[in-house]
């Protein structure tokens, strides 16, 4: 029987909630890199380089997944948004602590140089977003890097509406309530933002 990614995720979430470590690790591996990218897109540019520290992201992600019992699964998008939100909060706490403790940042391992050790209880490392072939994987990674750069070039209100709609999955009504705009204005603003993003993306 073939399962959709939504069903597979739901299955893994159910197993992980029941304490299945392997399911937990699979969730980390499938969603780890996506969560990191989503958080990077949400966060301010100046904080973002800190997210290249693999151990911080990994700890935050695992802590978030260990709180799965508080989560009710509805669909894959909701799960990913919940996971990235909780991970982002945990990460913020970690970063606060990091600054407070004046931890030696030279001990942090940068993501691109990360080589996990066998001593860790965590098996799954958030890998690159995977597709079928190495060239497709590389191409998608490059595209997502470009997307991040293009979003950085946008005006703050364009950037905000794109994050709220395309990343956080809010409805036009919810965005309007948050930004103090009508539904029509949100639609207009989002379309202008997406046109600007498209131009910025292809100019890179």
């Amino acid at each position: 029987m073939l399962y959709s990614s939504n069903q597979k995720t739901q299955q893994l979430v159910t197993l992980a909630k029941g304490g299945d470590e392997s399911a937990l690790n699979q969730l980390c591996r499938v969603y780890g890199e996506r969560v990191r990218r989503i958080i990077r897109l949400r966060m301010a540019r100046e904080i973002r380089p800190r997210l290249d520290s693999m151990d911080l992201v990994q700890d935050a992600l695992l802590n978030a997944l260990r709180g799965l019992e508080d989560f009710t699964y509805k669909n894959e998008g909701d799960f990913l948004r919940w996971l990235s939100r909780i991970t982002q909060n945990a990460l913020r706490d970690n970063l606060d602590k990091l600054y407070t403790d004046k931890r030696d940042i030279r001990k942090e391992v940068r993501l691109e140089n990360y080589e996990p050790t066998t001593g860790s209880g965590f098996v799954g490392t958030p890998g690159a977003i995977q597709t079928t072939t190495p060239s497709a994987i590389l191409s998608k990674k490059e595209d997502l890097d470009k997307l991040e750069k293009a979003i950085d070039q946008l005006k703050p209100d364009y950037r905000e509406v794109i994050v709220l709609s395309k990343i956080d999955g809010l409805s036009y009504k919810e965005i309007g309530d948050r930004l103090g705009k009508t539904i029509d204005s949100v639609g207009h603003l989002l379309s202008r933002a997406m046109v600007a993003l498209t131009e910025a993306f292809w100019a890179i």
Binding site: S5, R29, V30, I38, I129, K166, I167, G169
Partner: peptide, 19 residues
């Protein structure tokens, strides 16, 4: 560009196989 957001919030079939 729009489809990149979809790929960001939705896993592919092979992501699970690889994992």
């Amino acid at each position: 560009v729009d489809s990149l957001f979809d790929s960001l919030v939705q896993a592919d079939e092979c992501d699970f196989e690889d994992a």
